[in-house]
């Protein structure tokens, strides 16, 4: 009786997971990297995060905002962990609108760590108009907003190719192997030696793609490391407590079995 049921449960689970697996691995085979932050013990590499921020700042930030991040985040634990001085300098390198002052006027001042990342455009419509009708998405949570996450972002950055013969592309549209429909309105943003890394790392396209993707993953999940650390402790604790409770349960129930 019981064995039969178990067989049926297993069959149900197998069928479900097969279909779930199919559903989740939806998009075309993405490029996959062995990310340092993947898996239950995943962590970010500090220098990769700092390089990634440099890529964002020098390449992406001219079009892409990251409005849910503040400059102070760049210094907090679990992230790029720039020093307080570095964070202040980064913030101060931006002009932030403030006001109104006592005359009723808005004015510009140097950025502070508490300020949010400055937007490249005053509003979404300006962003769309400046980019041929396409909105460059805000990247604060972009990695979580795309199926495939970090692998997807990396694949897009590395996925620009010559369009196949006969493939129709409008003006200002580019061919990308991993984009849905293969059309993307952003031209390939990265190429070898586009920027010079301050830490001296060779700035190949793949390196920059990896670093900026790592940075974007942190930006979307700044507490990832704390989450993994706490999770490990919680599950070990639960297993410990469950063991104690299990033996307590056996001890208590032994009274019932003894009565027979």
């Amino acid at each position: 009786m019981k064995k039969n049921n178990i067989k049926k449960i297993l069959a149900a689970i197998l069928i479900t997971t097969f279909f779930c697996g199919k559903a989740f691995s939806a998009s075309k085979d993405l490029l996959k990297i062995d990310w340092s932050f993947a898996g239950i013990t995943g962590k970010f590499e500090r220098d990769s995060l700092q390089r990634g921020y440099q890529v964002y700042k020098e390449v992406c930030s001219s079009c892409h905002s990251m409005k849910y991040l503040s400059y102070r985040n760049l210094g907090q634990k679990g992230g790029p962990e720039f020093t307080l001085e570095e964070v202040k300098a980064i913030a101060a390198s931006y002009d932030v609108e403030d006001g109104p002052n006592s005359e009723g006027e808005m004015y510009e001042r140097a950025g502070r760590p508490s300020d949010h990342f400055v937007n490249p455009y005053p509003n979404d419509n300006a962003a769309i108009a400046a980019n041929g009708g396409a909105y460059p998405p805000d990247m604060s949570v972009l990695v979580k907003a795309r199926p495939g996450g970090a692998n997807y972002i990396y694949s897009i950055l590395m996925g620009y190719e010559e369009k196949p013969v006969g493939f129709v592309l409008d003006e200002g549209v580019y061919y990308n192997k991993y984009m849905d429909g293969n059309k993307i309105k952003m031209m390939s943003p990265l190429s070898d030696n586009l920027i010079e890394y301050t830490d001296g790392t060779n700035a190949t396209q793949a390196q920059m793609a990896k670093d900026v993707t790592t940075f974007l993953t942190w930006a979307a999940e700044p507490h990832l490391e704390a989450r993994h650390r706490t999770g490990t402790k919680v599950i070990i604790y639960l297993i410990l407590l469950a063991t104690l409770v299990y033996f307590s349960m056996k001890r208590i129930w032994s009274r019932v079995d003894a009565e027979k």
Binding site: R227, H228, T230, G231, I235, L238, I239, L241, Y246, M249
Partner: peptide, 16 residues
Amino acid sequence: FALLMFMIIFAGFVFF
């Protein structure tokens, strides 16, 4: 006991 087993699965989702 059953709740603790359930919480392990719950924690698996929440944290990982």
